[in-house]
Every structure is written in structure tokens, then in C-alpha cells.
Simulated scan of single mutants.
Amino acid sequence: MGRQHDDETCVTVHLPYAPTSVRRARHLLAGDLRRSGVRESVVDDAELVVSELLTNGLVHGRPNAERTIAVSWCLRPECLWLSVVDGGDVDELEAVQLNDHALSGRGLAIVDHVCDSWRFDREDGTRVTAELAYA
């Protein structure tokens, strides 16, 4: 499931393009981070971020050719990278400003608040990657 480099551990899982994959991704990510000795507060933040990214991919994206969605994380010496890739094709992504009246649309705003940075690219679908410092 993962590969190791000198100073990082990276994991990619391909999950069904279905809402049930959010729970599965959270479970896999949290277990991996805990086994690596990551602080519980960082595990909690990572679970929140991967939930938001994956939910956005499921709601606004499209499945890839295999009808899956890819979730990846790389545990680096001072930060954690979280990434979700769907088969969609968006021109622009931005975090909307949070307000008390919106019933949805808060995912990227939450990611923007919790993470140190995030970005997206359109190579092989839509990939959103967030960086969470923990050192």
C-alpha cells in the first residue's frame, strides 16, 4: 500500500467512487499516522482534511476510468501532504468565505484554515493537495 523513501513515507489508495470511501480513507490514514507516531491532534486534523477533500471530489468531481478516486498521503520530516485525485476537470478552485447561513460549500475553507497551504492541478483529473505542518 505504501512506499518508503529516506525521509518520507507515501501511501496511495484507490477507493470506490462512493460516499462510504470517506470513512475508509479516514480509517486507513489515521491508522497509518498513529503507527508512525504522529501526535493525536495532527491525526485529527488530517482526518478532517482528508474527509473534506474526498467529499469535495465525490460531490463536485467525477470518477476516473476505473470508477475510483485516489487518496494519498506523504509523511515527511516536518509536514504531512494529503492529496485526492478524481477524474473531473475544473478550471478553478477557491475557498469560499465562511458564513453562518451557508449549508454547504465549507470544505476548502476548512482545509484553508487547518492547513498551511493547499493547491490544485489538473494533471490526470483534478488533484487537490494540502500541506499540514506538524513539527
Rank of each mutant, 00 (worst) to 15 (best):
T55Y: 05
A65F: 04
A130S: 13
A25P: 10
E40Q: 01
R39M: 00
C115H: 11
L75Y: 05
L75F: 05
P19I: 12
G88E: 05
I69G: 04
E123M: 08
V111L: 11
N64Q: 15
L93S: 03
W81I: 03
S36I: 00
W118Y: 14
D100W: 02
R67L: 15
L29S: 07
D121Y: 07
A102F: 10
P77T: 06
A109I: 11
R3Y: 02
G37T: 03
L132S: 03
V42I: 10
R76M: 02
C74Q: 06
Q97R: 10
E131N: 13
E92T: 11
C79F: 05
A18P: 06
V38F: 00
H60G: 03
L132I: 11
G87Q: 11
C74H: 01
S21W: 02
S72M: 04
L48E: 09
Y17H: 13
N56M: 04
N99Q: 02
R127K: 14
A18M: 04
D44V: 13
T12M: 12
E94I: 01
R35H: 05
R34S: 01
L80I: 07
G88I: 10
E8F: 06
S51L: 09
A65K: 14
G125S: 10
M1N: 01
D124T: 08
Q97A: 09
D116R: 15
N64D: 15
R34G: 06
H27V: 03
R76I: 00
S104V: 10
G61L: 08
A65H: 06
E52Y: 10
G37N: 07
V50F: 05
W118D: 08
